[in-house]
């Protein structure tokens, strides 16, 4: 690809050759995951078909925490180094993280109904902590969407990101004490109870979802970057125009 056509793609869209092939890989992976998840992986002895939910639930839960960790790191880097790159990464990760978090909560409660016989269990620490985290991150996004001065908004959002990150362990601890018993499965990956095929499908699921996460992150990052360029560019143009007006203005100064 020549230099000019690269520039042209940069102007007209957020895609690149890499994201194109990544997208193709995600679609192919999703098809493979559906086949593996519904047909190759066996039903569980106790949970029966509901066990298939883990191919969505576990990857999205993992990626929620990856995303929100990126937001926390990005927030810190914005305050510490004024890194625009990290600021945009924090924002993109928060948005995508909220979607994954919603997916985690949704698949969890759909799975909980046949397995625990309830959509929601107050006694489950991870469940309640995740919901509180979800609500905090909604607040983060509402600060991001609040408008006004660009840098001030980034700083505010970064402080919210850090407040969330620092308070999360204590939220978790309080919920844990509050209901000192937990229904939640031990981590599905480490307890060694999964069938071989189920485990394989889960690993495929994590890879596919992670590739999708990366794809979405790259696009979201580029959109945010372009938006910022646009706003800053508009401002610069307006200033130049205003200056030109003042220079050519022949009316007497009042």
């Amino acid at each position: 690809m020549t230099q000019t056509s690269e520039n042209a793609t940069a102007r007209t869209g957020t895609g690149s050759r890499f994201t194109f092939w990544l997208g193709v890989a995600v679609i192919a992976g999703a098809v493979a995951l559906v086949v593996l998840g519904f047909f190759a992986a066996p039903a569980d002895d106790e949970q029966r078909d509901a066990v298939r939910m883990i191919f969505v639930h576990v990857p999205s839960a993992l990626l929620t925490y990856v995303a929100f960790s990126m937001t926390a790191v990005g927030s810190l880097m914005w305050i510490w180094k004024r890194s625009l790159w990290w600021d945009i990464t924090a924002h993109a990760a928060a948005e995508i993280g909220v979607i994954f978090c919603a997916l985690t909560l949704f698949t969890g409660s759909v799975w909980g109904r046949p397995t625990w016989n309830t959509y929601w269990d107050w006694g489950d620490v991870r469940l309640v902590t995740t919901l509180i985290l979800f609500l905090i991150m909604i607040g983060y996004l509402s600060i991001r969407a609040s408008g006004g001065d660009e840098e001030a908004t980034s700083t505010r959002a970064a402080v919210v990101g850090l407040v969330a990150a620092v308070n999360l362990p204590i939220v978790n601890r309080s919920v844990e004490w509050w209901f000192d018993r937990t229904l939640h499965q031990k981590s599905s990956l480490t307890d060694g109870n999964l069938e071989d095929m189920t485990l394989f499908t889960l690993v495929v699921g994590i890879a596919v979802w992670a590739a999708f996460f990366l794809w979405a992150m790259i696009h979201r990052f580029r959109i945010a970057w372009l938006e910022r360029e646009l706003r800053v560019g508009d401002l610069d143009e307006a200033i130049i125009e205003r200056r030109a007006e003042a220079l050519h203005d022949e009316s007497p100064v009042l």
């Binding site: 609040s146 001065d149 407040v163």
Partner: peptide, 30 residues
């Protein structure tokens, strides 16, 4: 802290509870 954070935000009356109340969850429980 969160009061200072929302000080310059246009919709600060509505944003503040969204930010403050989930953070205060451990206080409510404890």
């Amino acid at each position: 802290l969160l009061g200072a954070l929302v000080a310059g935000v246009r919709a600060r009356e509505t944003v503040l509870p969204i930010l403050l109340l989930p953070i205060l969850a451990p206080v409510l429980i404890g």
